[in-house]
Nucleic acid binder design. Structure first.
Lengths: 139, 139
DNA sequence: CTCCTAATGATAATAGTTCTCAATAATGTT
DNA sequence: AACATTATTGAGAACTATTATCATTAGGAG
């Protein structure tokens, strides 16, 4: 939770840019953002930040477990603050909106894989695609 | 199965390039290949094929349902022949090898989503990451 | 306050993919 | 079989997302 502590404990420095990026991510909990979006939103707080710094910061935060990388099959990666709650996403193929869903069934699957094969599963990626309520009623 | 028929029924033409790409994919059933790999393998059959044609052909085949696009989080997209059998992949984060696994549990999940929310799920993407037997014993 | 060096911003470089366009060739028609 | 039409092709330019480079700036230990 405490960014300063988490950074310093690994020999990293606490900079205004990193604090600004964290704030943006925290304000958008549950909303996966791509680096460009993070860049634009962070600029409103820290005007001079560069895009490269945003990329570097997101990568660092991922290392630290502060953010999670989300794969929405959209050409750019998306990141969201890691709240600890395991969830995945439903992406509307019509409007691109993203919803969360909890209750991941993959834990069961990982279990059965562990039994059936010699492959040791350490993580997984799951996304659902379809139509959101708004796009469904709009036809 | 019959490429010629499938192409013509949609107004597309049957070309030696497309036949060559299909053959490569068929010979590599169960092995997700990226466009560069398909390009190299296809060149052995049809020497003059261009990379752009490979990209266009894979996209077309995907439209026709001939191939499936696989997301291995590797910087490039991967494609494999669509045999109709629903399966997903286990990617070794150490050596990059890819194994298939059947028995997808997501159908159950799609079901429960359909009941719990108003989101209509039409497809999903699931990949598992971990360590393959070879990499496990090698330590 | 000083020094060391991590971090930054600007920009170049890279990787993967798509676009452009003139030349070629697959198919329907004669 | 020859022709006309137009989809397809190959080559390379263009584009997008991301990473690397490097001189300058600034965090923080002493």
């Amino acid at each position: 939770m405490d960014l300063s502590r988490r950074l310093r404990s690994r020999g990293h420095r606490v900079t205004p840019q990193r604090k600004a990026v964290l704030e943006v991510l925290q304000e958008n909990e549950g909303v996966p953002l791509d680096p460009e979006a993070v860049f634009e939103l962070t600029r409103e707080r820290h005007a001079g930040i560069g895009l490269a710094t945003v990329y570097r910061t997101l990568e660092l935060f991922r290392d630290l477990g502060v953010v999670l990388r989300v794969h929405l099959h959209e050409g750019s990666q998306h990141y969201e603050i890691n709240t600890g709650g395991h969830h995945h996403h439903m992406v509307c193929v019509s409007c691109g909106s993203v919803d969360e869903f909890d209750g991941c069934v993959v834990d069961d699957l990982e279990e059965s894989i562990r039994e059936d094969s010699d492959f040791v599963v350490t993580s997984h990626c799951l996304s659902l695609f379809g139509y959101c309520p708004a796009c469904l009623t709009a036809r």
